[in-house]
């Protein structure tokens, strides 16, 4: 038996919003420790890794490990049926071929359940080693979304250049070029408004703006986004999911032809 209850169904809605731009379907791997998801986008260029810890749920029970392959379009339709203030419970029997979503209004006067067919997905998992990154930048998630949106008007690529002074985002194309420099915040009153750089060595890397824009669909999950970069390895874009977990996106830097 698997059962996971979240008082804030809006978290699940936001998680889905954060992944459905990149993925059509995904396997939710449920175990005693929580729910994990790892999937590459269709083009195998980027990867989504999500973790929701069992202790972050209001109730969590997972007697046997269960992998639930879900069509994210169908899941979106079902979660649209939940009000933001509803309590959501996901349930499945062991070896089940369906999952049930139960939505309860805060006053318990309305209870709805939606059963969704599961899919057998043959998804490849990649082993991602623990990595020390040359630069780790934290900045307001809304600012990062704005920068990605603004720069994608100029070109297909965004150059991210990080030094101890700050971080610079650049793009160039047919209409011209654009540079956005963010200085490291000198005095931090509020962490969610700060720009911070932890740097071992300066790094300059080039990324596809289309994917960066897709990653920013997670903006509503967190006030802060963390970018981890090293020369010649994939960028990690991480958003915390409240007190319950995180979502990470991986994207390899473009290389010279």
């Amino acid at each position: 038996m698997f059962e996971a209850r979240l008082v804030q169904s809006s978290i699940l809605k936001k998680v889905l919003e954060a992944i459905k731009d990149l993925l059509n379907e995904a396997t939710f791997d449920c175990s005693d420790s929580g729910i994990q998801l790892q999937a590459m986008d269709n083009s195998h260029v980027s990867l989504v890794s999500m973790n929701l810890r069992s202790d972050g749920f209001d109730k969590y029970r997972c007697d046997r490990n269960i992998s639930m392959g879900m069509n994210l379009g169908s899941m979106t339709k079902i979660l649209k049926c939940a009000a933001n203030e509803d309590v959501v419970t996901m349930k499945a029997q062991d070896n089940a071929d369906t999952v049930t979503f139960v939505f309860e209004s805060p006053n318990q006067e309305k209870v709805s359940d939606y059963e969704m067919k599961l899919m057998n997905l043959d998804q490849e998992h990649l082993g991602i080693p623990e990595t020390e990154y040359a630069c780790v930048v934290r900045l307001p998630a809304g600012e990062f979304a704005r920068i990605c949106r603004d720069l994608s008007q100029f070109g297909e690529s965004v150059v991210i250049s990080c030094t101890k002074e700050g971080v610079k985002f650049s793009s160039a194309g047919d209409i011209g070029s654009a540079n956005i420099k963010l200085a490291q915040t000198s005095n931090v009153d509020k962490e969610e408004l700060a720009v911070t750089v932890e740097m071992q060595e300066p790094v300059t890397l080039t990324f596809a703006s289309r994917y960066l824009n897709s990653f920013t669909k997670a903006t509503s999950l967190s006030n802060v986004v963390q970018l981890s970069m090293s020369p010649d390895v994939p960028l990690v874009v991480e958003y915390r999911i409240g007190e319950i977990g995180h979502i990470r996106y991986y994207l390899a830097p473009k290389i010279e032809d």
Binding site: M40, H44, V45, S46, L47, E124, H125, L126, G127, I128, P129, S157, T206, A208, V233, P234, Y250, A252, P253, K254, I255, E256, D257
Partner: peptide, 14 residues
């Protein structure tokens, strides 16, 4: 121009 590598060029499937 620049090429976009696949993630499998960096991480091993398991």
């Amino acid at each position: 121009s620049r090429l976009q590598p696949f993630l499998k060029d960096f991480y091993v499937p398991h």
